[in-house]
Design a protein around this nucleic acid. Structure first.
Lengths: 194, 194
DNA sequence: CAAATGTCCAACTGTCTGGTTGGAATTCTT
DNA sequence: AAGAATTCCAACCAGACAGTTGGACATTTG
């Protein structure tokens, strides 16, 4: 059988997403990743160099996915509530990503950030779309567009970042499913831009 | 000299806050905590039982602090923007706390949550204050009060939870100090309740 | 003062982990 | 088909780490 290094790499990445999202860069076990991928762990060091670099590779792959799956065209910036809803939907379907981001945030300053340039450009693009929508009067202009983007991500992400807090906060709210959360989110973002 | 176990305990807690906030429950090193407190590490097991229980103790102590330092009277609920600003100020001054919360969030489901009852009561109190302000028409009533509380905490906390993302997002914003962030936060929260 | 209780600490242990290595098997090159 | 290069893997290693222990020392009690 021909070597299929691309597939082996992908198996490792897939297993690593799970492991890193669950346990973080510290707690992730290289042996577990290798076993889960059905590959010898030495492959990880051959292909990725170290555990930390594998983490970076995982993060970059996931960043590319989310960027591709939740686009924002100029027109869609007219209803940021719906945009927020779509971002929310993505994270509901792919809860790994925000956990990876949280792990990255917690080790911020101790290792360099993955794909910094691409991400900066990515955010700048969104901010520009927001600013354009404001300039054309399609959404309210009294909030700095970067802060608006911040607000959308904060309001989407907090559910996933501190689920234990949210659970305690929502203990008295009878109807607290994903749909209710999504509706509240969309409503609040619209209120920020009306 | 008389034994001062209370002081020893406090020294350990103080050292543990630092260590846990920095490295999380996984990454924290018991030896480092003990050394930093100038105490033998065996004390930790005598006083707190295990590393995980020490983490819980640390979290409970910090929860008590924040609850005491950022109160919300009925009248203050009239200006939630200012309330959010005060919460923001607290976290700027005590950046440990949100990190601890983030670590707790990431291990959610694997260990039980600290002080669950007290915290539920604490949040319920805030929600009730919000609801009262809404009922009396002092703030807008079209957002569920629990979701409003969620929004305040999300908008305050996200800066600290994913600092790396915020940095990239704000790369194009010339004036991005704590004051600018605070102002944007206050403005956005007011917009949610106007 | 003597027994009992509690505090402190240095040294130890069993286990786990990221990372390495030496060589066997497989594919590519010429 | 010979040899070079690459992929694979089992076994190994050195260090780190949470938690323990046994006993010295201090304090309280009666």
């Amino acid at each position: 059988m021909a070597w299929n290094t691309a597939k082996t790499k992908q198996l490792l990445l897939d297993a690593a997403v799970e492991e890193f999202a669950e346990h973080g860069p510290q707690g992730a076990r290289v042996d577990r990743i290798a076993a889960c991928a059905g590959v010898n762990k030495e492959r990880i060091y051959q292909y990725f160099g170290s555990k930390q670099r594998l983490f970076t590779a995982v993060l970059e792959a996931e960043l590319a996915k989310v960027a591709a799956d939740v686009p924002l065209t100029g027109e869609q910036a007219t209803d940021l509530g719906e945009y927020a809803g779509r971002v929310f939907d993505y994270h509901c379907a792919h809860p790994h990503f925000l956990r990876l981001l949280a792990w990255e945030g917690l080790q911020d300053g101790r290792v360099e950030v993955a794909a910094e340039d691409e991400r900066r450009a990515h955010y700048a693009e969104k901010v520009a779309a927001f600013a354009k929508a404001q300039a054309e009067g399609r959404i309210a202009g009294d909030v700095d567009p970067a802060h608006l983007l911040y607000a959308v991500f904060a309001l989407v992400g907090w559910w996933f970042s501190v689920p234990q807090v949210v659970r305690m906060m929502m203990a008295g709210t009878p109807d607290d499913g994903p749909q209710a959360r999504r509706a509240a989110l969309v409503h609040m973002v619209r209120r920020l831009t009306a």
